[in-house]
């Protein structure tokens, strides 16, 4: 993470997101639709980091996620590495300080993570894969984006996010 004055505060928010992943998320109902706070923390970190750091963070988060679902060990690491890298790299092209663009980042990042996990996992095929990509993954991307927006709006000053008029 960079060394801006708000860096420490943002770090606290990211830590809170990690804790929420293990405490709040199990209470939010369907696992496949509940917002992924761990991925959210990764994406917030990646948007503020260099691609190398984001890739390493993505790999770390992915391996942790894989440990919780060892049926496709490595799939999460692969997916999170790619998402982390692309998020960090994408900010050079787009305007990450804008709330709407950031929403797009979060939605696409979550959906892409799920797509890559399913693809690399190889456990889901046919109609099940179709529904996973079009229904469950989109649903989780929406809830994750909404959760991300709530975090950004709450801590807007720390994240230095602007809103389009």
């Amino acid at each position: 993470m960079n060394t801006q004055p708000s860096g420490f505060k943002v770090g606290l928010v990211l830590l809170a997101l990690v804790l929420m992943h293990f405490t709040v998320r199990p209470l939010l109902g369907n696992d496949r639709l509940a917002p992924d706070f761990l991925l959210l923390a990764l994406m917030f970190f990646a948007i503020r980091s260099r691609p190398a750091n984001a890739a390493v963070a993505g790999f770390t988060v992915g391996i942790l996620a894989d440990a919780l679902s060892p049926v496709a060990f490595g799939a999460g690491a692969l997916a999170h590495t790619v998402v982390g890298y692309l998020q960090a790299w994408g900010k050079a092209i787009f305007f990450p300080d804008n709330l709407l663009v950031t929403s797009g980042f979060l939605f696409f990042g979550c959906w892409l993570r799920n797509f890559l996990v399913l693809l690399a996992g190889g456990q889901t095929r046919g109609a099940e894969l179709f529904w996973a990509l079009t229904a469950w993954s989109v649903g989780q991307a929406i809830t994750t984006t909404v959760a991300g927006l709530l975090v950004l709006l709450t801590f807007r000053r720390w994240f230095k996010i602007g809103i389009i008029e």
């Binding site: 190398a52 060990f73 490595g74 590495t81």
Partner: peptide
């Protein structure tokens, strides 16, 4: 950045290709 990304990808693919018994042990 690119080299780090590629190294992470190689580690991830290696983890994915790791035999189930070793993967379960790591997990």
């Amino acid at each position: 950045d690119t080299i780090t990304f590629v190294i992470c990808l190689i580690f991830a693919v290696t983890a994915r290709l790791t035999p189930v018994t070793y993967a379960e042990a790591i997990a």
